[in-house]
């Protein structure tokens, strides 16, 4: 069982690094939802179904909704890179 937990935690950390490294903002939002997805399964394995349900509802549903809506509002939804070329080159990667 511990290997599934290890796989999930590894996924979580890799997705968290991907959030900071990926250039496209929508891809970063998808990676954020992956972090909370893995986290909710970890919470279930840690015998905390209440917390897992909150994390699933908030992290997978509401947070993605809010982030996607504000990306739309900000006009940062471009498929390729960022809106401003000079930021796309150096500003996005943290």
């Amino acid at each position: 069982m511990i290997w599934l937990l290890g796989l999930l935690i590894g996924m979580m950390l890799a997705a968290a690094i991907a959030v900071l490294v990926l250039e496209n903002h929508i891809a970063a939002v998808a990676a954020t939802s992956i972090v909370s997805l893995a986290l909710s399964v970890v919470f279930v394995l840690l015998r905390a179904p209440d917390v897992a349900m909150t994390e699933a509802a908030v992290g997978a549903g509401l947070s993605s909704l809010i982030l996607a809506l504000s990306l739309r509002r900000l006009g940062l939804w471009q498929i390729e890179g960022d809106k401003h070329p000079e930021i796309a080159k150096e500003g996005v990667d943290a």
Partner: peptide, 23 residues
């Protein structure tokens, strides 16, 4: 938990898809 997750993940992904399609 699975019920809530299945219902809400769909909504979240649809919102992200709408954001991509927006342009």
């Amino acid at each position: 938990v699975a019920l809530v997750y299945g219902a809400l993940a769909f909504v979240g992904i649809v919102a992200v898809a709408r954001a991509i399609e927006g342009g």
